[in-house]
Design a protein around this nucleic acid. Structure first.
Length: 123
RNA sequence: GGAGUUGGCCAGACAGUCGCUGUACCUUCGGGUAUGGAGGAAAGUCCGGGCUCCAUAGGGCAGGGUGCCAGGUAACGCCUGGGCGGCGUGAGCCGACGGAAAGUGCCGCAGAAAAUAUACCGCCGAUGGCCCUUUCGAGGGUACAGGUAAGGGUGAAAUGGUGCGGUAAGAGCGCACCGCGCCGGUGGCAACACGCGGUGGCAGGGCAAACCCCACCCGGAGCAAGACCAAAUAGGGGAACGAUGGUGCGGCCCGCACUGUUCCCGGGUAGGUCGCUUCAGGUGUCCGGUGACGGGCAUCGCAGAUGAAUGGCUGUUCAAGACAGAACCCGGCUUAUCGGCCGACUCCACCU
């Protein structure tokens, strides 16, 4: 397995997984995204996404955003460490084009590293 | 060539690389290899059906739907063909297109009047009244009673049209032709049609997407349907261990209160499995049918996810890529949509 794959164990799969993150998470955000972070005690990070129908109305746009976020996670998973992430999308994110969306995601992750990682080591 | 009508089709292409997911095979159980992986609307959820559970889904009531005829279909509010009406030079297009002499209701403004019709202006005033004249036969005037739907005016709509006769003036009052109703005949399965025959002077406005009447159709809920496995947890039933037990109140008896372990049944939450993709299936061809469609034969296997796959990046290329993402499955309808291709037909212009 290479360092940039994305099998099922790197995802948040159940409602309880999501609840745990929502219950005790460190938040980082920008106008388009919010990232919730929580240490998971495993050897790898896990990703979950929540894009509501309210935030992004069209199914095609929701799928596009989800794929972009997943790709970013897949390529940067080594830098994240053993944390669970839940990425929330805000209304208006579907107005961004491909490049702008990628910039926004990168920006948000950088902010998250700076703000949350130190505090999350001992949550 | 220009303008147009109509039916169908396509929905950027190719290569590399990094990923996701179904299936098959291999596996040292880490994974590897091969091969599939969104749409014409996947959408809206507006109809119809399959499937599942509820009672076997039958009768009645309520409620809802459909509404020219025939056919197609699993079925339909869909499709095909035909009829009728309207629009268009035409190809064609559009139409909730049953009943208004079963009943109820509504018809703004304008207008006299909007429905058992009615007299505003106008016309007449034969007949009756009143006045005048009179040769006593009648004549003239008035517009009081009244007559009149020809003309004017209002309106979306005012009791069929034209002509002649008729009359005081008029009027289907009478007649001719046209229109209309009814009966019959002919053609057609039928809707319906007829430059066919007879008969009736003519019924008598519109709205049924107002209630309603008539005919036909419809039980309800939906894959979070439903079936199975099953940690946890509440309370329940049974059996065995068990000595008539143990603990508390009490000096003791009586009495009162609380109470064990194991197993099974049962229950069903989290979670999981099935339902879940092979089909009213696609393609080709032949036959039947005007057609929708049906039948025969051959051939193909074409998403099946479940915090939810079907993508990211790079390059080349062109006409520069719209609307848009399966969630049980089909048949329709409706709506969104960049650009392009093919077929059939119509009108106009030109050439031969």
């Amino acid at each position: 397995m290479t360092a940039e794959c994305f099998p099922r164990r790197l995802r948040l799969l159940s409602a309880t997984d999501f609840k745990q993150v929502f219950a005790s998470a460190c938040k980082a955000g920008n106008p388009h995204l919010t990232i919730l972070v929580r240490a998971n005690g495993l050897a790898y990070p896990r990703l979950g996404m929540a894009i509501s129908r309210k935030a992004v109305r069209r199914a095609v746009a929701r799928n596009r955003i989800k794929r972009q976020l997943r790709e970013y996670f897949r390529h940067h998973q080594q830098q994240i460490g053993n944390f669970d992430l839940v990425i929330l999308c805000k209304p208006g994110i579907d107005k961004l084009d491909k490049a702008a969306l990628r910039d926004s995601v990168a920006n948000c992750f950088a902010y998250m590293f700076k703000r949350c990682k130190p505090t999350c080591i001992n949550p």
